[in-house]
Simulated scan of single mutants.
Amino acid sequence: MYTRYTYREKITCCLIGVILLMVGSACTEPFQGEVAGLEDILVVNALITNENKHQEVRLSRPYRFDENAPIAEENAMVSIDNGTEQFAFEEVEPGIYVSDVPFAAETGKPYRLLITTENGRSYQSDAMQLPVANTSIDNLYAERTTNDEGDEGMGIFVDTFDASSESNYYRYEYQETFKIIAPFWSPMDVVFVIQESDGPVFDVILREREEKVCYGTEREKSINVVNTLNLGEDRLSRYNVRFIDRSDYILSHRYSILVRQYVQTPEAFAYYEALRGLSQSSTSVFSEDQPGFLAGNIFSLDDENENVAGFFEVAAVTEKRIFFNYEDFFPGEELPPYFQECMPATQSGEDLKTTVLRETRVFYDFNQGIRTVPRACGDCNALGSNKVPDFWEE
C-alpha cells in the first residue's frame, strides 16, 4: 500500500545536516543540536491531541534527494504512558502506528512516548503536557485580496481570541478540496480492439465511469506558527493562513478548506519555529545539503550520544471548514487557466494505439478522424477522485 507523507514529515526527514543548531527563546529551554552527517537515525513524527480518537505515531529514517519518500521504520513497539495508563500502538502500514484504542490527551497528565525498534534499541520522549487553554477558531473566512507581492487572489483568514491569555502559541494546518471539471470531457471513449495485418482496430464506446467531475485534495505545504506574546492581548485578527493566486486552477469552480488550529506548548512552538527556519534557509527542503540537524525532545535510552530527529507533541486542536465558489468573488470574470494546455490532436494507427494503451490521452471528438486530448483535459481522475467527499456541500 502506498504511504502518503506530509510536507512536515518530509522536511523533518531531510533536515539531517552538518552544523550545530541551538533553538531557544527567553521563555523556553533550548534544544541541543549536534554535528551530524546524513546518518541512519530514527525520525519521529508524533502528535496526540485532546480529540478522542485513535492517535498516530510515524517512524522513519532520513532519505536523500534522489529518493521518493522517507524510509519507513517497521516492526517497532510503540506506546504512550501518562503515569497511570499505557496506550499500546499497532503498525497499520509500514512506519505508521495507531493506538489500539481511541483516547484523548487530558490536562494535568504527563505523556511520554516509548519506542523500541526491531533491532532492540529503546527511545523515550520528555514528558509533555496538554496546554491548559483550548481556544477555538472564532471565525474562518475568505476574501478577495492582494498579497504583499501585488498578486490578486483569495485570502483565507482566521480570527481567534483567548480571554484568559493562556494560549499564546499557535500552529495552523489546512487541507483544501476543490472541484475539478475536465474542460474537454466527452461521454465517449476510444478503446483498442485488435491488431490486424493492416494496423490496429479501435472502437468508440460510452465511458464506464465518471470522468467529467472530480475532487482534488491538497494538504499544507509549509509550517505555519505564530505567537501573541508581543500583542496587547491573546488575539489573532485576520490572520492569513493561506493565499491562493487567482490564476490557480483550484479556484475555478467550488473550493473548500479545512483549517486546524493547534494550541502548542512553548517547547513545541520553539521546535516548529526552528524547523520552519531551517526549511526556508535551503533552496530546496528536499535537498540532502541542509543547513543543520534539529534535535527535538526524543532521546535514546541506550546511547546518550545518538541523534534522534523529530518531536513528540501534545496539543489542543480545533477546526473549521468553509466553502465558496469562484463566482462568489469573481462574478462574470474569466476562469483561471486549466492545469495544463488542452490542444486536441488527430491521431490514428500505431500512434493512437500507443496513446490508448499508455492512457496518456483520451478521446475528445471526431474531426477528420479521431481527436484526442491530454488525459487530464478529458478525464478528471488524472487530477483527483470522482468520489464525492462525505463532507462536500454544494
Results as ranks from 00 to 15, higher is better:
residue 105 A to D: 02
residue 105 A to K: 08
residue 106 E to V: 11
residue 110 P to N: 03
residue 111 Y to K: 00
residue 111 Y to M: 00
residue 118 E to S: 10
residue 119 N to H: 12
residue 120 G to V: 08
residue 121 R to P: 12
residue 122 S to I: 01
residue 124 Q to P: 02
residue 129 Q to D: 05
residue 132 V to F: 08
residue 134 N to V: 07
residue 135 T to Q: 09
residue 137 I to S: 09
residue 137 I to T: 11
residue 137 I to A: 13
residue 140 L to E: 02
residue 140 L to C: 01
residue 142 A to H: 03
residue 144 R to N: 03
residue 146 T to Y: 03
residue 147 N to M: 06
residue 148 D to T: 14
residue 151 D to Y: 11
residue 151 D to L: 08
residue 151 D to V: 09
residue 151 D to I: 09
residue 155 G to E: 04
residue 156 I to S: 01
residue 158 V to A: 06
residue 159 D to M: 07
residue 162 D to I: 15
residue 165 S to I: 05
residue 166 E to R: 10
residue 166 E to T: 15
residue 168 N to S: 08
residue 168 N to V: 14
residue 176 E to D: 10
residue 178 F to M: 01
residue 179 K to T: 09
residue 182 A to V: 04
residue 182 A to P: 10
residue 184 F to W: 08
residue 184 F to C: 12
residue 185 W to M: 03
residue 186 S to V: 12
residue 186 S to D: 12
residue 186 S to R: 10
residue 187 P to F: 01
residue 189 D to Q: 14
residue 189 D to C: 07
residue 192 F to K: 05
residue 194 I to C: 06
residue 195 Q to H: 04
residue 195 Q to G: 00
residue 196 E to D: 11
residue 197 S to C: 04
residue 199 G to P: 05
residue 200 P to E: 09
residue 201 V to N: 08
residue 206 L to H: 09
residue 206 L to A: 11
residue 206 L to N: 15
residue 206 L to F: 14
residue 206 L to D: 14
residue 211 E to H: 13
residue 212 K to Q: 15
residue 215 Y to G: 00
